[in-house]
């Protein structure tokens, strides 16, 4: 019965490298029965404009998530460690952090 339904059975997450030098970025998802069809659909859907460099498709159920629900155990460690950030330390010039010349 489900085969007659529209929208292929599997969902795929689509990642696009829009330009050289950029990481692949998640752009959305497609439905397709198999990886080749998923790639073709992703190409038609997400690369109609511009000059993209490469596409990934990954089965949605193969993506493992650390989501906001699990925020504390996963991400608590990222907070409360101000020494990971440059602003935590004495500025390198007299003008203060604003005077730091990054350019």
């Amino acid at each position: 019965m489900s085969r007659e339904r529209e929208g292929a059975p599997a969902s795929w997450e689509v990642f696009l490298r829009a330009r050289r030098g950029l990481a692949h970025q998640h752009v959305g998802s497609v439905r397709a029965a198999d990886p080749d069809a998923a790639l073709a659909t992703a190409r038609d859907l997400y690369t109609r404009r511009g000059d993209p460099l490469s596409l990934w498709v990954v089965r949605s159920d193969a993506v493992h998530t650390a989501s906001p629900d699990e925020r504390d155990p996963y991400f608590a460690g990222a907070r409360h460690k101000p020494y990971r950030y440059p602003e935590h330390f004495a500025p390198l010039t007299e003008k203060g952090p604003e005077g730091d010349d990054h350019e």
Binding site: E6, G7, A8, V30, R31, A32, A40, T41, D44, L45, R48
Partner: peptide
């Protein structure tokens, strides 16, 4: 499928 509308129009 709608995907195929897109593919054929391409």
């Amino acid at each position: 499928t709608v995907e195929e509308d897109l593919a054929l129009s391409n």
